[in-house]
Amino acid sequence: MSSPDSAKPEYVLWSYTPSLAGGVVAAGVMFILFLAHTFRLVKNRTWFCIPFVIGALFEGIGYSGRAAAHSDTTSKTPYIIQSTLILLAPILFAASIYMILGRLMQRTDSAEYSLIRATWVTKIFVSGDILCFLIQGGGAGMLVGAKDKDGVERGENIILGGLILQIMIFGFFLVVASVWHVRLQRRPTAASADLPWGKLIWFLYAASVCIAVRNICRVVEYAMGKEGYLLSNEWPLYLYDFLLMAITLSVCLSWYNPNIKPGRKNDIEFARR
């Protein structure tokens, strides 16, 4: 019969007590952005931006979980909610950004300027995004269900792999976007005069940089492990995750422009001119 001293110690969910004020403020900001995105989505019927709305809701609920954990750091429910939803929300933001580029290419009748077929831009990058979502979601599930250090490390390594893959996909996406951008600048199409695509592509870059920086910081976070500084302290999360994702959501409000859709088409796909 084993003694209590020989039993494995119970895994500690939090390395600190989550800030109630921080969680409440962050959740409030995200819910406001969720409502703003929902209003613009319904008003302009730009349905391909639905992942933005779902991601904003994920963020709001996630930070609510952090606020709830302030008074109970032993409960798994708020820990699971915040760790999973805050981790996965940016993947949804990226999905809409990928779809936006494909629609800009078709809306400006400049598909031939793309490194890959414009009709495949959305399919390729969103498929990669779904794969990253599944990998990171699986890692998050393993992490929150871990009962010992080995289980935690397995979950962290899976999440780390998903984040690295996401960064690689995002990097290739930025190459495709920038090449298309430069080519269209050099040889504008007649259709490009009907849309402020130059301003929209810079909004896309701004959102993309925020997501890319966030992902890199998350890679460093999980590479350092549970005992590392980033996971042992709360303030970095609000700097490289909350702040950057709030900026991303604010910038992406510009995409709910009815001009991004062809005037004679009511669904989310662009028709070729």
Rank of each mutant, 00 (worst) to 15 (best):
A68I: 12
A36N: 07
A56Y: 08
R66S: 10
K76Q: 12
L57E: 00
T77V: 14
G55V: 03
P51L: 02
G55H: 05
T46G: 05
H37Q: 07
S75L: 11
D72H: 05
G55I: 08
A56Q: 05
N44A: 15
L57D: 01
I54W: 08
L41D: 00
F52D: 07
A68R: 03
S75P: 00
R66Y: 06
F52C: 07
C49N: 14
G65E: 00
F52V: 10
H37M: 04
T74Q: 14
T46E: 12
F52N: 10
T73D: 01
V53W: 03
D72T: 06
R40L: 14
K43S: 13
L41E: 00
L57N: 00
S71T: 14
P78S: 10
C49H: 15
C49Y: 15
R45D: 02
I61Y: 09
V42G: 04
N44I: 11
T77F: 09
R40A: 08
T77K: 10
T74E: 15
D72K: 05
D72Q: 08
I50E: 09
F52I: 12
T46Q: 13
D72Y: 05
V42S: 07
F48I: 07
F58K: 05
A36S: 09
V42I: 14
L41T: 03
A69Y: 04
W47M: 09
T73M: 05
R40I: 04
A69F: 08
S75H: 11
T77M: 11
S75E: 09
T73E: 01
T77N: 10
G55M: 10
V42M: 11
T77Q: 08
T38Q: 08
Y63K: 04
F48G: 00
F48Q: 03
I50H: 09
G65M: 01
A68D: 12
V53K: 02
T74M: 12
G60H: 06
T74A: 13
K76C: 02
S64R: 03
S71D: 12
L41A: 10
T38V: 08
A56L: 12
G60L: 05
R45A: 09
H37E: 01
A69R: 03
A67M: 05
R45E: 09
A56K: 06
A36L: 13
V42H: 11
V42Q: 08
A56S: 14
R40S: 10
F58Y: 13
A68W: 10
I50S: 13
R40V: 04
I50T: 15
L57Y: 05
E59F: 15
L41F: 04
A36T: 06
